[in-house]
């Protein structure tokens, strides 16, 4: 069976999720790793045109793509162009005869489903769904040149977000430190960032925080924000509303700090601290610094 992997870069490096799915595809067998080139910025029309033309020659059975913002868009557009089955945000993929068995969350994270996607199919895969084997070799990537004349949109400009942090992307981070309304205001993020720096973590936030404009929208975790599943998720001053939980309950270890012992976040926490976050957080950051220095 022929499998395609479509990869993406951040700067000059392959994204971690791209390497994860390339390693997975190598296990599945006959894998080709492709990268759309020739576009300064991702846009679906030229990218899809290039991949669809190549698919007609190659006839892969399964196309895997990372469920990043562009990967989700490109995967969906490609499946639509080719008229193939599409499943998004897979947490596992297996091939079973003429179909792919895909594990994925549905109903905003409230249901775990296994779906059968008849081949040929395009599947977007969540970062972290497949662990990168230690010492995995860099995959050999074949360029697929996009034709800019397939574009109908004109790029105008880039507008950076003032508070953008330049950290690891939220959905690919192995540690996420998230803040909620309990932090009282944007100035408290100095404290949050200090912990995130020590941990090499990405920053997250509840919707209360992004709606209030304390933090940029791209940091929102939850049903109408990002879905994350890091090794460690630290929730500071977050109540644990069902829509927030939708985005983070697949995390391996959850730590919650909240002054209300009845806060719902404690129902999903592996380690809960009932405390005033303003007292607890500086002390905790110190301890983490010590632990990191010792290791």
């Amino acid at each position: 069976m022929k499998t395609w992997v479509v990869v993406e870069r951040k700067g000059s490096e392959l994204r971690r999720v791209s390497r994860e799915i390339a390693a997975k595809a190598a296990q599945l067998g006959d894998a080709t790793v492709l990268e759309v080139t020739g576009l300064e910025r991702y846009s679906p029309l030229p990218a899809v045109a290039a991949l669809a033309a190549r698919a007609k020659q190659d006839q892969p059975s399964l196309v895997l793509i990372g469920a990043t913002p562009s990967g989700r868009d490109l995967g969906a557009s490609l499946a639509a162009r080719l008229g193939w089955t599409y499943a998004s945000e897979a947490t596992d993929v297996a091939v079973d005869g003429d179909a792919a068995l895909v594990s994925r969350m549905m109903y905003a994270g409230k249901v775990r489903a296994t779906v059968q996607a008849k081949l040929p199919a395009v599947v977007s895969v969540r970062p972290g769904a497949f662990t990168l084997p230690g010492g995995a070799a860099e995959p050999t990537v074949e360029p697929v040149a996009a034709d800019a004349s397939a574009e109908k949109l004109a790029f105008q400009r880039f507008e950076p977000t003032a508070a953008a942090s330049g950290r690891v992307p939220l959905t690919e981070a192995s540690v996420v430190v998230s803040g909620g309304r309990g932090l009282r205001g944007p100035e408290s993020w100095k404290m949050v960032e200090e912990l995130a720096d020590v941990l090499g973590a990405a920053l997250g936030a509840s919707r209360a925080v992004t709606d209030a404009g304390w933090r940029p929208n791209e940091e929102q975790v939850g049903q109408t924000g990002k879905t994350v599943a890091p090794d460690l998720y630290i929730a500071l001053g977050i109540s644990g509303a069902i829509q927030h939980l939708a985005g983070m309950t697949s995390s391996k270890v959850i730590v919650a700090v909240n002054k209300d012992p009845d806060a719902d976040i404690f129902k999903v926490a592996d380690y809960g601290v009932v405390a005033d976050v303003f007292e607890f957080l500086p002390a905790f950051t110190d301890e983490v610094k010590k632990a990191k220095a010792a290791s």
Binding site: T85, Y86, A87, L101, V102, M105, M106, G109, K110, V111, R112, A113, T114, V115, Q116, A117, K118, T249, S250, I254, P261, F266, K267, V268, A269, D270, Y271, G272, V273, V274, A275
Partner: peptide, 19 residues
């Protein structure tokens, strides 16, 4: 995609609460 199986998400809780 055809649904083969649906399950509730893995149960959580029973964590250590420190106060």
């Amino acid at each position: 995609p055809e649904i083969v199986k649906m399950e509730p998400p893995a149960a959580r809780g029973g964590g250590k609460i420190m106060k």
